[in-house]
Protein backbone atom coordinates (compact mmCIF):
# COMPACT_ATOMS: atom_id res chain seq x y z
CA UNK A 1 0.00 0.00 0.00
CA UNK A 2 2.81 2.32 1.00
CA UNK A 3 4.64 1.79 -2.23
CA UNK A 4 1.64 2.34 -4.44
CA UNK A 5 1.11 5.71 -2.78
CA UNK A 6 4.79 6.43 -3.33
CA UNK A 7 4.46 5.64 -7.00
CA UNK A 8 1.30 7.72 -7.24
CA UNK A 9 3.06 10.69 -5.65
CA UNK A 10 6.04 10.37 -7.97
CA UNK A 11 3.88 10.13 -11.08
CA UNK A 12 1.79 13.12 -10.12
CA UNK A 13 4.92 15.14 -9.36
CA UNK A 14 6.59 14.26 -12.66
CA UNK A 15 3.42 15.05 -14.50
CA UNK A 16 2.89 18.39 -12.76
CA UNK A 17 6.49 19.52 -13.01
CA UNK A 18 6.24 21.10 -16.49
CA UNK A 19 3.16 22.95 -15.29
CA UNK A 20 5.33 24.67 -12.69
CA UNK A 21 7.76 25.81 -15.39
CA UNK A 22 4.87 27.04 -17.48
CA UNK A 23 3.42 28.91 -14.54
CA UNK A 24 6.71 30.66 -13.74
CA UNK A 25 7.00 31.72 -17.35
CA UNK A 26 3.45 33.03 -17.29
CA UNK A 27 4.23 35.07 -14.17
CA UNK A 28 7.28 36.55 -15.87
CA UNK A 29 5.39 37.36 -19.04
CA UNK A 30 2.58 38.99 -17.12
CA UNK A 31 5.14 41.25 -15.46
CA UNK A 32 6.67 42.01 -18.83
CA UNK A 33 3.37 43.18 -20.31
CA UNK A 34 3.27 40.21 -22.66
CA UNK A 35 0.83 37.41 -23.20
CA UNK A 36 3.51 34.86 -23.98
CA UNK A 37 3.17 31.15 -24.51
CA UNK A 38 0.17 29.34 -22.94
CA UNK A 39 0.46 27.59 -19.59
CA UNK A 40 0.77 24.16 -21.11
CA UNK A 41 3.57 25.04 -23.53
CA UNK A 42 6.22 22.89 -21.78
CA UNK A 43 3.95 19.86 -22.30
CA UNK A 44 3.60 20.71 -25.96
CA UNK A 45 7.36 21.04 -26.23
CA UNK A 46 7.93 17.60 -24.71
CA UNK A 47 5.36 15.96 -26.95
CA UNK A 48 6.91 17.71 -29.95
CA UNK A 49 10.39 16.48 -29.06
CA UNK A 50 9.13 12.91 -28.60
CA UNK A 51 7.71 12.98 -32.09
CA UNK A 52 10.89 14.24 -33.73
CA UNK A 53 13.76 12.25 -35.10
CA UNK A 54 16.88 12.15 -32.99
CA UNK A 55 20.16 13.19 -34.56
CA UNK A 56 23.23 11.86 -32.79
CA UNK A 57 26.65 13.24 -33.66
CA UNK A 58 29.12 10.71 -35.03
CA UNK A 59 31.88 11.89 -32.77
CA UNK A 60 30.08 10.95 -29.54
CA UNK A 61 30.44 7.87 -27.40
CA UNK A 62 28.00 5.78 -25.34
CA UNK A 63 27.93 8.46 -22.66
CA UNK A 64 26.04 10.79 -24.96
CA UNK A 65 23.33 8.21 -25.54
CA UNK A 66 23.22 7.07 -21.92
CA UNK A 67 23.22 10.47 -20.25
CA UNK A 68 19.52 11.37 -20.75
CA UNK A 69 18.52 8.04 -19.20
CA UNK A 70 20.85 8.49 -16.27
CA UNK A 71 19.70 12.07 -15.69
CA UNK A 72 15.99 11.30 -15.86
CA UNK A 73 16.37 8.11 -13.88
CA UNK A 74 18.38 9.71 -11.11
CA UNK A 75 15.98 12.65 -10.89
CA UNK A 76 12.95 10.40 -10.54
CA UNK A 77 14.82 8.25 -8.02
CA UNK A 78 15.61 11.43 -6.08
CA UNK A 79 11.94 12.27 -6.17
CA UNK A 80 11.22 9.05 -4.29
CA UNK A 81 13.24 10.28 -1.32
CA UNK A 82 11.60 13.66 -1.06
CA UNK A 83 8.28 13.94 0.72
CA UNK A 84 6.33 15.88 -1.83
CA UNK A 85 2.85 15.79 -0.41
CA UNK A 86 3.25 14.24 2.99
CA UNK A 87 6.15 13.14 5.06
CA UNK A 88 5.40 9.51 5.29
CA UNK A 89 5.33 8.98 1.56
CA UNK A 90 8.97 8.63 1.02
CA UNK A 91 11.24 5.63 0.53
CA UNK A 92 12.12 5.87 4.19
CA UNK A 93 14.15 2.79 4.76
CA UNK A 94 16.32 3.15 1.69
CA UNK A 95 17.97 6.50 2.03
CA UNK A 96 17.85 10.04 3.27
CA UNK A 97 18.23 13.55 1.98
CA UNK A 98 21.92 13.08 1.27
CA UNK A 99 20.90 10.37 -1.18
CA UNK A 100 18.90 13.02 -3.01
CA UNK A 101 21.97 15.21 -3.39
CA UNK A 102 24.08 12.28 -4.48
CA UNK A 103 21.55 11.37 -7.16
CA UNK A 104 21.55 14.97 -8.39
CA UNK A 105 25.32 14.90 -8.50
CA UNK A 106 25.23 11.67 -10.51
CA UNK A 107 22.90 13.22 -13.06
CA UNK A 108 24.99 16.37 -13.23
CA UNK A 109 28.18 14.37 -13.72
CA UNK A 110 26.76 12.50 -16.68
CA UNK A 111 25.26 15.63 -18.19
CA UNK A 112 28.58 17.46 -17.94
CA UNK A 113 30.31 14.53 -19.64
CA UNK A 114 27.68 14.51 -22.37
CA UNK A 115 28.25 18.22 -22.92
CA UNK A 116 31.93 17.51 -23.48
CA UNK A 117 31.30 14.39 -25.51
CA UNK A 118 30.12 16.05 -28.69
CA UNK A 119 33.30 18.04 -28.89
CA UNK A 120 31.62 21.37 -29.54
CA UNK A 121 33.00 24.45 -27.85
CA UNK A 122 29.69 25.53 -26.35
CA UNK A 123 29.06 22.21 -24.64
CA UNK A 124 32.50 22.23 -23.12
CA UNK A 125 32.07 25.76 -21.79
CA UNK A 126 28.67 24.89 -20.38
CA UNK A 127 30.01 21.82 -18.61
CA UNK A 128 32.91 23.70 -17.06
CA UNK A 129 30.63 26.47 -15.82
CA UNK A 130 28.12 24.01 -14.42
CA UNK A 131 30.82 22.19 -12.50
CA UNK A 132 32.24 25.47 -11.25
CA UNK A 133 28.89 26.58 -9.88
CA UNK A 134 27.96 23.21 -8.45
CA UNK A 135 31.20 23.10 -6.49
CA UNK A 136 29.84 26.06 -4.52
CA UNK A 137 26.27 24.88 -4.40
CA UNK A 138 26.73 21.41 -3.00
CA UNK A 139 28.36 22.37 0.31
CA UNK A 140 25.62 24.92 0.94
CA UNK A 141 22.87 22.41 0.25
CA UNK A 142 24.41 19.80 2.52
CA UNK A 143 25.04 22.15 5.44
CA UNK A 144 21.55 23.60 5.15
CA UNK A 145 20.00 20.18 5.22
CA UNK A 146 22.22 19.25 8.13
CA UNK A 147 20.77 22.16 10.08
CA UNK A 148 17.23 21.02 9.43
CA UNK A 149 18.07 17.41 10.06
CA UNK A 150 19.70 18.15 13.37
CA UNK A 151 16.35 18.98 14.92
CA UNK A 152 15.18 15.44 14.72
CA UNK A 153 18.64 13.93 14.75
CA UNK A 154 17.86 12.19 11.57
CA UNK A 155 18.70 13.03 8.01
CA UNK A 156 15.80 11.03 6.75
CA UNK A 157 13.53 13.47 5.03
CA UNK A 158 10.32 12.07 6.41
CA UNK A 159 11.60 12.45 9.94
CA UNK A 160 12.96 15.88 9.16
CA UNK A 161 9.69 17.24 8.03
CA UNK A 162 7.77 15.77 10.91
CA UNK A 163 9.17 18.37 13.24
CA UNK A 164 6.86 21.23 12.72
CA UNK A 165 7.62 24.52 14.24
CA UNK A 166 10.00 27.10 13.04
CA UNK A 167 13.28 27.94 14.56
CA UNK A 168 15.72 30.71 13.97
CA UNK A 169 18.34 28.45 12.49
CA UNK A 170 15.79 26.95 10.14
CA UNK A 171 14.86 30.38 8.82
CA UNK A 172 18.43 31.34 8.13
CA UNK A 173 18.96 27.97 6.49
CA UNK A 174 15.94 28.68 4.29
CA UNK A 175 17.55 31.92 3.12
CA UNK A 176 20.61 29.94 2.09
CA UNK A 177 18.48 27.31 0.41
CA UNK A 178 16.63 29.94 -1.60
CA UNK A 179 19.87 31.08 -3.18
CA UNK A 180 20.76 27.45 -3.87
CA UNK A 181 17.40 26.93 -5.55
CA UNK A 182 18.07 29.88 -7.86
CA UNK A 183 21.41 28.40 -8.82
CA UNK A 184 20.27 24.79 -9.22
CA UNK A 185 17.15 25.60 -11.28
CA UNK A 186 19.17 27.85 -13.60
CA UNK A 187 17.35 31.08 -12.81
CA UNK A 188 18.49 34.66 -13.08
CA UNK A 189 20.74 35.93 -11.44
CA UNK A 190 22.80 32.77 -11.99
CA UNK A 191 21.66 31.55 -15.41
CA UNK A 192 19.15 32.67 -17.99
CA UNK A 193 16.74 29.99 -19.23
CA UNK A 194 15.29 32.14 -21.98
CA UNK A 195 18.50 33.13 -23.67
CA UNK A 196 19.44 32.19 -27.21
CA UNK A 197 23.07 33.22 -26.77
CA UNK A 198 25.13 30.04 -26.53
CA UNK A 199 28.16 31.88 -25.22
CA UNK A 200 26.34 32.89 -22.05
CA UNK A 201 24.55 29.61 -21.32
CA UNK A 202 25.37 27.41 -18.37
CA UNK A 203 22.84 24.60 -18.12
CA UNK A 204 21.31 24.92 -21.59
CA UNK A 205 24.70 24.72 -23.28
CA UNK A 206 25.15 21.11 -22.25
CA UNK A 207 21.81 20.25 -23.89
CA UNK A 208 22.57 21.95 -27.22
CA UNK A 209 23.54 18.77 -29.05
CA UNK A 210 20.43 16.85 -28.00
CA UNK A 211 17.30 16.43 -30.06
CA UNK A 212 14.19 14.28 -30.23
CA UNK A 213 13.47 11.84 -27.44
CA UNK A 214 16.67 12.52 -25.49
CA UNK A 215 15.86 16.19 -25.35
CA UNK A 216 12.37 15.42 -24.11
CA UNK A 217 13.86 13.30 -21.32
CA UNK A 218 16.28 16.00 -20.33
CA UNK A 219 13.59 18.68 -20.29
CA UNK A 220 11.37 16.48 -18.14
CA UNK A 221 14.29 15.83 -15.81
CA UNK A 222 15.03 19.56 -15.51
CA UNK A 223 11.46 20.44 -14.59
CA UNK A 224 11.24 17.54 -12.12
CA UNK A 225 14.46 18.68 -10.49
CA UNK A 226 12.97 22.15 -10.18
CA UNK A 227 9.90 20.69 -8.48
CA UNK A 228 12.10 18.76 -6.05
CA UNK A 229 14.07 21.85 -5.09
CA UNK A 230 10.90 23.86 -4.59
CA UNK A 231 9.51 21.09 -2.38
CA UNK A 232 12.69 21.00 -0.32
CA UNK A 233 12.61 24.76 0.13
CA UNK A 234 8.95 24.71 1.01
CA UNK A 235 9.60 21.88 3.44
CA UNK A 236 12.33 23.74 5.26
CA UNK A 237 10.31 26.92 5.57
CA UNK A 238 6.86 25.48 6.06
CA UNK A 239 7.04 21.81 6.92
CA UNK A 240 4.53 19.23 5.86
CA UNK A 241 1.83 18.92 8.50
CA UNK A 242 0.47 15.77 6.92
CA UNK A 243 1.59 12.24 7.42
CA UNK A 244 1.04 8.97 9.14
CA UNK A 245 -2.46 7.71 8.72
CA UNK A 246 -4.19 9.91 6.17
CA UNK A 247 -7.74 10.08 5.06
CA UNK A 248 -8.82 11.14 1.61
CA UNK A 249 -9.61 14.66 2.73
CA UNK A 250 -6.21 14.83 4.35
CA UNK A 251 -4.70 13.73 1.07
CA UNK A 252 -6.51 16.36 -0.91
CA UNK A 253 -5.60 19.03 1.63
CA UNK A 254 -1.98 17.92 1.39
CA UNK A 255 -2.01 18.33 -2.36
CA UNK A 256 -3.68 21.70 -2.09
CA UNK A 257 -1.08 22.91 0.39
CA UNK A 258 1.63 21.65 -1.91
CA UNK A 259 0.06 23.54 -4.81
CA UNK A 260 -0.06 26.68 -2.71
CA UNK A 261 3.62 26.38 -1.78
CA UNK A 262 4.53 25.93 -5.46
CA UNK A 263 2.53 28.97 -6.47
CA UNK A 264 4.15 31.18 -3.84
CA UNK A 265 7.58 29.87 -4.82
CA UNK A 266 6.85 30.54 -8.48
CA UNK A 267 5.76 34.09 -7.76
CA UNK A 268 8.88 34.86 -5.72
CA UNK A 269 11.19 33.30 -8.32
CA UNK A 270 9.39 35.05 -11.17
CA UNK A 271 9.73 38.43 -9.49
CA UNK A 272 13.41 37.81 -8.79
CA UNK A 273 14.04 36.89 -12.42
CA UNK A 274 12.35 39.99 -13.76
CA UNK A 275 13.92 42.44 -11.37
CA UNK A 276 17.54 41.47 -11.83
CA UNK A 277 20.05 41.19 -14.59
CA UNK A 278 22.12 38.05 -14.88
CA UNK A 279 25.31 38.21 -12.82
CA UNK A 280 28.68 37.99 -14.44
CA UNK A 281 29.96 34.44 -14.02
CA UNK A 282 32.63 35.23 -11.47
CA UNK A 283 30.25 37.26 -9.36
CA UNK A 284 28.25 34.10 -8.81
CA UNK A 285 31.07 33.19 -6.42
CA UNK A 286 30.10 36.12 -4.20
CA UNK A 287 26.45 35.17 -4.40
CA UNK A 288 26.99 31.53 -3.50
CA UNK A 289 29.60 32.48 -0.91
CA UNK A 290 26.88 34.45 0.79
CA UNK A 291 24.63 31.41 0.67
CA UNK A 292 27.35 29.25 2.17
CA UNK A 293 27.81 31.72 4.94
CA UNK A 294 24.14 31.75 5.76
CA UNK A 295 24.15 28.00 6.03
CA UNK A 296 27.15 28.05 8.35
CA UNK A 297 25.48 30.80 10.33
CA UNK A 298 22.41 28.61 10.69
CA UNK A 299 24.63 25.86 12.00
CA UNK A 300 26.21 28.24 14.49
CA UNK A 301 22.82 29.34 15.74
CA UNK A 302 21.70 25.74 15.91
CA UNK A 303 24.73 24.87 18.00
CA UNK A 304 23.45 27.22 20.63
CA UNK A 305 20.14 25.48 20.72
CA UNK A 306 17.99 27.77 18.64
Amino acid sequence: MQYSWLLFQALVAVFCAPLLSGFIRKVKNALRMRRGAPLGQPYRNIVKYLAKEEIVSETTSWIFRAAPFVVLGSTIAALMFVPVFSFSFSAAGMGDVLTVFFLFALGRFFLALAGLDAGSAFGGMGSSREMFISSFVEPVAIVTVAVVAAHGWSAESGEMSRHIGTSFSRMVAAAALFMVVLAETSRIPVDNQETHLELTMIHEAMLLEYSGRSLAMLEAAASTKQLIWFSLLGGVLWPWPFGGAMTLTDGIAAMALFGLKMIVGALVVGLTEIGLAKMRLFRVVDFLGLAFLFSVLALVILSLGY
Partner: peptide
Protein backbone atom coordinates in the same frame (compact mmCIF):
# COMPACT_ATOMS: atom_id res chain seq x y z
CA UNK B 1 21.99 40.24 -23.62
CA UNK B 2 22.59 40.59 -19.88
CA UNK B 3 19.35 38.85 -19.08
CA UNK B 4 17.43 41.93 -17.98
CA UNK B 5 14.24 41.17 -19.81
CA UNK B 6 11.87 43.79 -18.52
CA UNK B 7 13.59 46.91 -19.87
CA UNK B 8 14.45 44.95 -23.02
CA UNK B 9 10.76 44.40 -23.56
CA UNK B 10 9.98 48.03 -22.80
Amino acid sequence: DVGFSFPAQF
